[in-house]
Each structure stands twice: as structure tokens, then as C-alpha cells.
Computed example of a mutant assay.
Amino acid sequence: MSGYHTRWVRPCEQVEDPERIAIREALAFGKALYDRRVALGLGIAEVAERAGMTEDEIECIEEGGTAPTVALLRHLAAALDADVRLTAGHDLGSVWFEAHAA
């Protein structure tokens, strides 16, 4: 509880805005793709070619403009020789590509 002026009130439970959640998920997805691409030393064109996508599509994902779907995550993981890892939450770091175990 927190005080407001001269009385105590219980603040309303705040429900997260679905639009904000979607934005954070898209940003986390973009960061995961960028991090893996850089770790492999690949350019956008190389990732696009490996994934059978356009450079614009890869750039859009990296900029947080594309919502992550299971199919797209799997497709990019295969192109990046990696597995997809997810954690609870919607913040940066909740999605990443991890190199296949040797």
C-alpha cells in the first residue's frame, strides 16, 4: 500500500498492455538475431541468403519490426546453425539463439 495525501489506498492491479508486450518481444527477437549474426561474423546479406529472405526482412527483424513466430524462429535458427532459447518474460534477453552443442 502507498499513501496518497491524507489517506491510504490500495493501488489497482496494473495489467500489462498487450501492445507493449508485443513491442518488447519484437525487440528481444531482433536483438537475438543481431547478436547471433555478429557472433558468427555474418553480414545482413549473408544471413538473408542463408535464410532465403531479403535483406530488408532481416533488417526489419533486427530493428524490432517483426513479431516472433514459432515458424520464423525455427527458420532463422536453422539458418544460423543454432537452437532457439526462450525464457519467461518479454524483455531483452528473453529470446536468444544458442550455437548447437558440439
Rank of each mutant, 00 (worst) to 15 (best):
Y4E: 14
A32S: 02
D17P: 00
E19W: 11
R24C: 05
D17G: 08
W8K: 11
A28P: 00
F29L: 03
A101V: 07
P18R: 03
D81N: 10
E59P: 05
D91I: 13
A82L: 01
E46K: 08
R36T: 00
F97W: 06
A45V: 10
V95E: 07
A102H: 14
A78I: 10
G3N: 14
L92Q: 02
G89A: 03
A67V: 12
A32H: 04
I58Y: 03
F97P: 00
E55M: 07
D17W: 10
R36V: 01
L72R: 14
W8T: 09
A82H: 02
G52H: 08
G65D: 01
C60W: 11
V95T: 09
I58N: 05
E13F: 14
I23S: 07
W8I: 12
W8L: 14
E57M: 15
A79V: 04
T66V: 15
T69Q: 12
G43L: 09
V47E: 00
E16T: 02
L92E: 09
A71N: 14
V9W: 13
D35R: 05
L72I: 11
C12D: 15
E13R: 15
L40H: 10
A22S: 05
V70D: 15
E57F: 15
A67I: 09
K31P: 00
V15T: 03
H100F: 10
E63W: 08
R20T: 12
G89R: 04
F29H: 02
G64S: 03
D35W: 06
A79P: 00
G65R: 00
A102Y: 10
F29R: 04
D35L: 05
R20L: 13
H75W: 06
A78V: 10
L86N: 03
E98G: 02
A32N: 06
A28N: 03
R37L: 07
V47C: 00
A26Y: 07
G3F: 15
R85K: 14
T87N: 12
A22E: 08
A102T: 11
I61T: 05
L76I: 05
A71D: 13
R10W: 14
R20P: 02
A99M: 07
D35K: 02
A102S: 13
F97Y: 08
I44R: 10
R10T: 15
L40S: 01
E59M: 12
A26T: 04
E25Y: 14
E63L: 15
Q14C: 11
E59T: 11
E98Y: 06
I44N: 10
I23C: 07
H100N: 04
V9F: 14
G3A: 15
A99R: 10
R24M: 11
T87F: 09
P68F: 04
L92F: 08
E16K: 09
M1V: 11
A28Q: 01
G89I: 06
L40N: 09
W96M: 08
D81I: 04
G65I: 00
D91V: 13
V9A: 13
Y34D: 06
A45E: 09
E59Y: 10
C60Y: 13
V38E: 08
G89E: 02
F97T: 04
I23T: 07
E13P: 06
A28T: 03
R10P: 01
L86R: 09
D17K: 10
K31I: 14
V9Y: 13
